[in-house]
Design a protein around this nucleic acid. Structure first.
Lengths: 349, 349
DNA sequence: AATTGAAACGCAAACGTTTGCGTTCGCGAT
DNA sequence: ATCGCGAACGCAAACGTTTGCGTTTCAATT
């Protein structure tokens, strides 16, 4: 490891005081152009680079923000949410010259310790929390510390003062339900993950509102809230398809379940969209590779991250800022896994 | 933001010198048990937590390691490699109480700047580089700086002194080829991404070696090296299936291409594995959700990350260590997308 | 009782910055 | 020639730790 060149080294070589070098680096107006040129020359020559630790120590501001994630989270591993949202965060941070720090903890306690270390250890200026769980210690801690943070998702606790970014999932589900209803469907199934996730329960709500508004009743058998794995997924799908009045359309909450559903339908030789319509949440470029051109709902993951980062920045700059709640709009990407009732015959030709 | 309690605050309250507090924190044997108890009590009471910046400044060691990734890398977004490898790295780091820092840059220059900032800015003790590109500046820079780092993948430059972790892709491809050959196949296609990636060219090599060894010749039409997108993928697959002597088995280098292939085969009503065998690289739990139980090659992504982290640690502890090259073994996960030639009829009953 | 020697602790410098304030310098106005 | 006054720069303290070394304490040895 080469020894680093410090401000003092530069100062010595340039025959100025360290403070002058510092001011040159920050382009202070109190330094003459002549000295600036001289010092800058030496800076280049010696290959100076700032020691961020020393800087952080005195300015009390690291140029970094932390990301809290539940690392073994199944749901974030197999859909592109995790990388996408980090890319979004990264994009903004990069524009502002900030860097990113990740929690590494596996257990909840370990994660909490990571957060404490980041916050109290003054390693980051702000935090972005990538999940929202019922009785989690992280968010309450951040609030108590008065530390700038934003949440991606919806706060599950009834704590106030939380700035959060998310989609309007109720709205999104309502829109997509209305869309499907508008196509003429009356028997619409809801296939999703565990309702303990805010996302799912919100979407369920939107779905039900739309159905109610359209005067369609929703038999409980149409609603399948299941863990995200093959066996439970298969069972749910079989149940639905085995119904005397089987649904003609599926609202699927996850790409994985969507893939599973398409597979089952293909095996049963049921054509999508001719016999069954499928709409799937969380658009990603992955679906391009499926043989069925799925109609999806784009939740704009990248933008979620980007806006979240922007928000922590505002919070850092102005800690007394009122909490806000930014909703990223969703968009139905219409491809060809849905059909309008009555069009079956035309299509079959 | 609450004001932090420092070592001095604790020292004052406990009627000892700051140095004593520091030694208590580090559990120095030169401090009596009595004082330790007293100081520890005050530490808890005041809720002390160390300021890492100050610590890093004097010890010249942050307890963090950096991760370099090419962020917009398509290939890392849609297969679970990226999250998985980070989880692996995180697992080890967490065990050792280290934290993680990510580059945020989009362009190559931005990424390079991130790296410089991490290294020279003394924000990390070591680095893990998640890619290896032909004429990249990062690796040469790290070498020049004598900074501890390891590469995941295979160094594309002819620079020596690089510790790197990867799979033996030649070997892996050879094994899987032999496996398929052993089933009786003679017409085996190779479907993969761009050969500018070391992974692909290595596997291609292994494939060809196995074919040669078995005395099977490989017509150039059997080898499709294409960019990872739908159109190019479809074209390649169509080409292969349209051949007068179409392959009976496919070696697929990527989950995405695998999914695409399965879709096309289903549309053409070609049964897997009865008519066509498919083996796909990069096992992930995702494939559980496909209707076809794909036989895959597990490259142990998680362990790649874990071992990489372990390596930087060794390097940090002992910078003069000889470079090493750790190969993570691969494993064929045999499921049911392959068939032994001659068994078709049995299966059909 | 004086001496010795660990054991236990305190002092102060150092790490590389930033920044308030003081000092120097040159120069035009008196 | 003196004064005054910005402009340009240097001094030194501060940020919160760690650590080598010096000092104190106190029990054990002579």
């Amino acid at each position: 490891m080469k020894m680093s060149v410090t401000i003092k080294d530069v100062a010595k070589k340039a025959n100025v005081a360290p403070s002058t070098v510092s001011r040159v680096i920050h382009n202070s107006p109190t330094i003459s152009e002549k000295t600036k040129r001289k010092v800058r020359k030496v800076l280049k020559e010696m290959g100076y680079h700032m020691n961020e630790n020393a800087r952080n120590l005195v300015t009390k501001s690291t140029k970094a923000i932390g990301i809290v994630m539940k690392s073994s989270a199944r749901e974030s591993l197999y859909n592109p949410f995790f990388p996408e949202v980090i890319r979004g965060i990264g994009d903004f941070c990069n524009k502002e010259g900030y860097s990113l720090s990740l929690t590494t903890g596996e257990t909840e306690d370990a994660i909490f310790e990571d957060v404490v270390k980041m916050v109290q250890g003054r390693r980051v200026d702000g935090m972005i929390v990538l999940y929202s769980k019922k009785d989690d210690k992280v968010v309450p801690y951040l609030i108590k510390q008065g530390f700038p943070f934003v949440l991606i998702g919806k706060p599950s606790t009834n704590l106030s003062g939380i700035t959060f970014i998310d989609n309007d999932n109720v709205q999104a589900a309502m829109e997509v339900s209305e869309f499907v209803i508008g196509l003429g469907h009356k028997r619409i199934a809801f296939l999703g993950g565990s309702p303990e996730f805010e996302v799912i329960s919100d979407r369920l709500m939107g779905y039900q509102q739309a159905m109610d508004a359209a005067g369609l009743d929703v038999p409980q058998e149409y609603i399948k809230l299941i863990p995200l794995n093959r066996t439970d997924g298969l069972k749910a799908i079989d149940d639905l398809l085995g119904l005397k009045e089987a649904p003609t359309a599926f609202l699927v909450m996850d790409l994985l379940l969507g893939v599973l559903l398409l597979g089952v339908l293909a095996e049963k030789n049921m054509k999508v969209p001719q016999q069954i319509s499928v709409v799937c949440f969380n658009h990603s470029e992955f679906i391009e590779f499926l043989s069925t051109p799925l109609t999806t709902v784009d939740i704009h993951t990248h933008q979620l991250g980007y806006e979240a980062a922007k928000c922590v920045f505002d919070l850092i700059a102005n800690p007394e800022m009122m909490e806000k709640n930014i909703r990223i709009p969703t968009k139905i990407i219409k491809r060809e896994s849905h059909f309008a009732v009555g069009e079956e015959l035309k299509r079959k030709m």
